[in-house]
Design a protein around this nucleic acid. Sequence first.
RNA 1: GCGCCUGUAGCUCAGCGGAUAGAGCGUCGGCCUCCGGAGCCGAAGGUCGCAGGUUCGAAUCCUGUCGGGCGCGCCA
Length: 528
Amino acid sequence: MEDPAAAPGVEVERPANPAFGDFATNLAMKLARPLRRSPLDIAEALATALRTGQDAALFAAVDVARPGFLNLRVADAAYEALVAGVLAAPAQWGRIPAVKRRKINVEFVSANPTGPLTVGNARGAFVGDLLCRVLEAGGQQVTREYYFNDSGAQINHLGASVFAIRRGEPVPEDGYKGAYVEQLAREVPDDVWAAATADGAQPDAVLGGWASKRVRGMIEASLARLGVHFDVWKSEASLHDEGWVARAVQRLRDAGEVYEQDGATWFRSTAYGDDKDRVIFKSDGRPTYFAADIGYVTEKFSRGFDHLIYVWGVDHHGTVARNKNAAQAMGYNPDSYQVILIGWVRFVADGVEVSMSKRAGTFVTLDDLLDAVGTDAARWFFASRAAHVEIDFDIELARKQSAENPVYYVQYAHARIASILRKAEAAGLAPATSVAGLLAGEPEAALARTLSRLPEVVEDAVLAEETQGITAYATDLATEFHAFYRDARVLDEAEPDRSARRLALALATKTTLANALGLLGISAPESM
RNA sequence: GCGCCUGUAGCUCAGCGGAUAGAGCGUCGGCCUCCGGAGCCGAAGGUCGCAGGUUCGAAUCCUGUCGGGCGCGCCA
């Protein structure tokens, strides 16, 4: 046996069927071919080794099953030690030691400040923040960053719309409509209006600049409601003003990957596998969005980040290659430029698709969503689905179902435990400090087995950079606790020792639920 | 046409190489003398789009095919 750990596809897993034990491994089956022995023979040999080895005390049972599984049942004492560890260091429970601590920049939302955040922005905001939390749980140092466009055509359109409404004229064809624009028009301060209408002034730009600042304030307030806090707000204009774009283009030019054609300036993206070359400066001399993007990359790396993550909607996936290629051409490791594409959210109301348009003013704002379902329920909804898949979101259904949202199931279990602990204290009962004999009964054992899974669930989330596993696990643990509650009377003054042990287990469960919810940014209420 | 994502229970979604395919909601039927009924127990409901292939083993990997979404601008 050269190096069994190096055999591909070897896994240790939790069997779906608890009758097979706590852990199972396919090691023997994977070894069968290279060793030219039958899987059952190998499994038997491994089982004997484990049963008599120095760690034999860890296992209550080591069994072999067809066609070659090795099934392990962990000894009660190991679970008892684990629960004791949870109680001794609750804040540490579920945290994963970083293999390598890196400085990571995560840019998300980055919606232009031309209108309030809509439900369309909600997914990016939640998923971006959840990603950051998962990275932090994995020991990474994370900076949350919001990139916004504070000049240019979109902002001028907004300004023109405000200008028109203020003067009682119809909103221009490519302008913005909606109650918030009318609100903005009413709130234009006298000095701003004077500056916008002075001789030689550009009303669109002046009013657009003012309005976009106001809108940014609205956006920040909405994000605060979500529990999303950004460390850095970066303006596109600053990338040009501070010379980042110019220097980045020069770097590409020095690398020989820039050329002029048809009056425009191009990046040779095809040299790195792209479908076509990409314009940096248009023939009228103005920069494309891509120009700002490459300047931004150099600006971010100049701040010492080891890794950049961009959370974008799938509709931007066509721009990934050019940006990654430019990063590589400028000398950065392309693997340190990572894009996570968020699947489309199809909004439906009572089964009928509704289109969202900021310009047409037909959209549901993020604040409306939160008013309807609450931040915990909204967070749970997005956390429980893979980031890259397209999903349907029926806001009417969400509204109706908000009272029976699965998040409350988990929170209820937490609140129920809190209530039991309060009652125990009033009765003079306290959780046991010694956990010997904790797994005396099957209800206890089942609950201990489930709560012990938290670290591996978190590790899986960290590796996958996804959170569905955490919501699923929290639901499992809540279910397991409700079963325990049904089958095992916790508070019983006639059985103080047993009560103390069960209280200890309940407290460890409460900690586990709170840590799982905390990782998702969801509250764990003491009562509800 | 090409590229990427996607098709799993009535609905919304997990599972993504292992041993009887899961959850929530919905439907039907039970459970409040006792630690919170926002709970518990049970039932119905699936050819994992389809067809080949790889493997001891495929919802999971490969190929093809059909359906849905997104992208393929000197737009942002």
